[in-house]
Write a protein that binds this DNA or RNA. Structure first.
Length: 563
RNA sequence: GGGCGCGUGGCCUAGUCAGGAUAAGGCGGCAGCCUCCUAAGCUGUAGAUCGGGGGUUCGAAUCCCCCCGCGCCCGCCA
């Protein structure tokens, strides 16, 4: 696919440069390759070389162009190279376009060549209540990255780190001791006692000691507290999992932070950090001085009462992770920026590989930021319910003759897609404001737009039996060629999103792919086309359907066959 | 106060990391397209000094500096 074309262009350029005796600096994109409206791939390397060679970029480009060891048929994917002033324009040849259509008939061509083992940790929400619309930004970004990396060829373990030793879980247990869990969904029931407990402790500060006592006994290995905390946390996670599953999100493994306290890993981390000479006792607590690395405040490794802290436990978790994978990816909210830099610095001090951290900015409500503790949030369940309700109305308006069962099922799939696409389409480093109107809009910049294109392709394919013999060379219309080229881009998009950990790039591609298909659909009749052309167009519909399906699946969005 | 991030038509965003050939979409506005494979679609049109100011460069939305605005953080919480 596109990456093959690109590497062929690269080697053509490299040998031409060598022939001319030109040297380019090594580095990313040293050949100055860029996508261009004027060609399939362009190089502005002439500009790069101009200051060194003291000649005009156009002259340099012309010289490179002249010594390009290129004749028709000498390359498997490049048709021609054109000189346009200082630019070199590369074009794909017909054989290459044909091979894209043929490859895309199958299932093999969509998988990338990466082969690393990767751990992606995402969601890891405290088991103190349901996921809200802020949490799901973490879950959706994380799960989409898991899918992208798998598509790129990696072996991925999606991990959920369970914070069972923190204050918030002790608060939940205190709440369960004093209030009754009602029969609402597990995570929602937990949230109610958690909110009540917070209220009680705020109003009666003396109760704080009781909560502290729970933490201390749990850390000391008290069986009763352990049973209570594990039970409460598991109950909350059960509810959280239901919500995640509803959004097509699954974790491969769960890791409890208490594990790393019990097995001694936390103590070992502390010992190793002491060996750096940067850790010292202050006010009874062990603190790490990271001022040499630009951190003002010291990082507390162990409380004066001897109990551990979140960061220290997280260090132990990361040390373990580093022995299990070649890449570690953490998805964290913007509130973790500082602590994750400190974590990485501490790991570096111990010569432990650092994770790649994907930070996403906050999702706020028009009324301000969300808070589980204060009960101020829109839950993911509520969001999904509302979107599903809206989707049901829309599908009913369009397909009133279909059974309610089918309409419900389509609405559920549309809702999952709409929510996931809406969340992941914005770059992670942009703070967003939750907007009901946008969440309930199923038009162009949304998952239903892409699902719809897929459904249209399926609809055409349903009307014919087999595709049979076809000649891809007949697909020469403007929209047909554009569609083939767009399909070809799939491997490059996956590769780049997987390396840069930018899942929103895939949503842009998905939109472009669907747009291309809709144009082809609009201007190239398939079923009414003359016999031979019909077969070729059917093959392109099939290729498009496969590309749309792969893209949707990688986004975790159901590829609906009818809607 | 310090650190990090963000600022692109009325609104939401892509493009910024790796500077290049006319700033790309959506929503909303206006004007059109269902005897035609699903109109959750398609076409046309109006609308942008890319927050402001300096600088680097043949060339800056993109890199550097300053300023302004917004967000997050600066706990022996997580």
């Amino acid at each position: 696919m596109f990456l093959d074309f690109k590497s062929e262009v690269e080697s053509l350029l490299h040998s031409a440069l060598e022939k001319c005796g030109f040297k380019v600096e090594v580095g990313v994109n040293s050949l100055s390759l860029e996508s261009s409206p004027h060609s399939d791939l362009a190089s502005s390397v002439g500009f790069r070389l101009a200051p060194v060679l003291r000649r005009s970029p156009a002259l340099i480009a012309a010289e490179i162009h002249k010594s390009m060891a290129f004749s028709p048929g000498s390359a498997s994917s490049v048709d021609r190279v054109e000189l346009a002033g200082p630019y070199l324009n590369f074009f794909m040849n017909r054989d290459f376009l044909d091979s894209i259509v043929i490859q895309a008939q199958g299932t093999e061509c969509w998988k990338g060549k990466m082969s690393q083992k990767v751990i992606v940790e995402h969601t890891s929400a405290n088991p103190d209540g349901p996921l809200h619309v802020g949490h799901i930004r973490n879950s959706v970004i994380g799960d989409t990255l898991v899918r992208i990396l798998r598509k790129a060829g990696c072996t991925v373990d999606a991990q959920y780190y369970v914070n069972d030793m923190g204050r918030q879980e002790a608060m939940v247990v205190w709440g369960c001791d004093h209030y009754k869990l009602d029969d609402s969904k597990a995570d929602h029931a937990i949230a109610k006692v958690y909110i009540a407990a917070n209220k009680a402790v705020t109003e009666t500060p003396e109760l704080k000691a009781e909560v502290d006592h729970i933490i201390q006994r749990y850390e000391a290995g008290d069986q009763e507290q352990e049973a209570k905390i594990k039970c409460a946390a598991k109950y909350a996670i059960m509810g959280i999992e239901q919500t995640l599953h509803r959004m097509n999100i699954r974790h491969d493994s769960y890791h409890w932070e208490s594990t790393f306290v019990r097995n001694g890993d936390v103590d070992r981390v502390i010992q190793d950090l002491q060996k750096t000479g940067l850790a010292e006792m202050e006010d009874g607590a062990l603190q790490l001085d990271l001022s040499a690395f630009g951190f003002e405040k010291k990082l507390v490794l162990r409380r004066a009462d001897g109990t551990s802290l979140y960061t220290t436990r997280d260090l132990a978790y990361h040390r373990w992770k580093s022995t299990q994978a070649e890449r570690m990816v953490d998805i964290l909210g913007a509130d973790h920026k500082l602590i994750s830099s400190q974590l990485r610095t501490a790991l570096r001090l111990m010569k432990i590989p650092e994770p790649e951290v994907v930070i996403f900015e906050f999702v706020s409500l028009p009324s301000g930021s969300m808070s589980t503790r204060r009960g101020k949030f829109i839950s993911a369940d509520e969001l999904l319910d509302e979107v599903e309700k809206q989707a049901f109305e829309e599908v009913t308006a369009r397909r009133p003759e279909e059974s309610e069962e089918l309409r419900r099922s389509i609405a559920a799939d549309v809702a999952v897609g709409a929510v996931r696409y809406d969340v992941v389409k914005v770059s992670a480093d942009k703070a967003t404001m939750f907007d009901w109107k946008a969440a309930l809009d199923f038009e162009k910049l949304s998952a239903p737009f892409i699902q719809y294109s897929h459904a249209r392709a399926c609809s055409i394919l349903r009307k014919v039996g087999e595709i049979g013999q076809f000649d891809p060379g007949l697909l020469t219309g403007e929209n047909e060629v554009a569609m083939i080229k767009k399909i070809a881009e799939f491997d490059q998009v996956i590769d780049r999103a997987g390396r840069e950990l930018k899942p929103h790039q895939l949503t842009t591609y998905a939109r472009e792919l669907a747009e291309s298909f809709n144009l082809f659909y609009r201007f190239s009749p398939v079923l009414d086309a003359p016999q031979e052309l019909k077969a070729s167009r059917l093959a392109l519909v099939n290729a498009s359907r496969n590309a749309l399906r792969e893209t949707l699946e990688t986004l975790g969005i159901p590829a609906l066959e009818t809607m």
